[in-house]
Design a protein around this nucleic acid. Sequence first.
DNA 1: TTACTCCTGGCC
DNA 2: GGCCAGGAGTAA
Length: 295
Amino acid sequence: MPELPEVETIRRSLGAAVVGQRVMTAEFRREDILRSDPRTSAGSAARCAARTPGSRIRDLGRVGKHLVVHLDDDWGWIVHLGMSGTLTLSDGGPEADHTHVVWTTEDGSSLRFRDPRRFGGWTAAEIPPPEGVLKGRVGIDALDPELDAAAFAARLAESRSPVKCRLLDQRLVAGLGNIYVDEALYEAGIHPGTPACHLSSASWERLYWAVRRILASAIDHRGTTFSDFRDGRGLTGDNWERLRVYGRAGAACGRCGRQVEKMILRGRGTHYCPGCQGEEIEGGETGDDSFPGTT
DNA sequence: TTACTCCTGGCC
DNA sequence: GGCCAGGAGTAA
């Protein structure tokens, strides 16, 4: 669930309340969500778990889909929410099942990480993360001001892979997941299966701006909640009402009226409008209109 | 590149 | 009971 807009929504809803707070107690209840990274000098995850109490939360940042909890002494936790993770602040009250990490802070509130599917994880690292911990695995953030349309195209275009797969590759541009990729490709009028190297520069420009608009709008609406997602205060997001193709297979396209379709592309459910997202071939190197991306 | 893996919950 | 899911790492 959590893609860039959901992680950013959590960061914003949590930030003001937790930044500056000292961590009084920190329980990490399952070892399998702790990750150590040999490339950081912060030490093993177990050791970092033990040294978390007493640290002050200096900042709460985000890179792509990762939250960066910056503690004193320039180290911290890089939290990935996986598919079902939430991080919420509570004044008390009963704990939900699958709560794996609980921190209490000096103002008496508790920060709770819940992740039923346990695809998420906490990695201890120096902050800012050294080469290798994020770099190499996580590319430039999709909303980074330095990522302009030209840089966006330059990073993604050089491959025959379907453009959707390029957008999902976190090493190239970080933050997009299945929902917003489908939405952005729809908005830009580009078929998800189009080989990236076949897109024209005009298409890259449209796609770049579509990604920016879609992400910014989703943040404005505090993310998309299907079932699990909550912000840092436990509230759901409104953005699901604004989705145009994701989860709408069989419904009429709002632009052309044709039925939105769902297919499987490289193993991922992929939603698109066959009317508005005709495949795009630049240079005319293939004459047939068979489905792209299968060779 | 593809396919399988981790895990639980919700829906048919 | 089976299938599907917003992610991402790994092995083949």
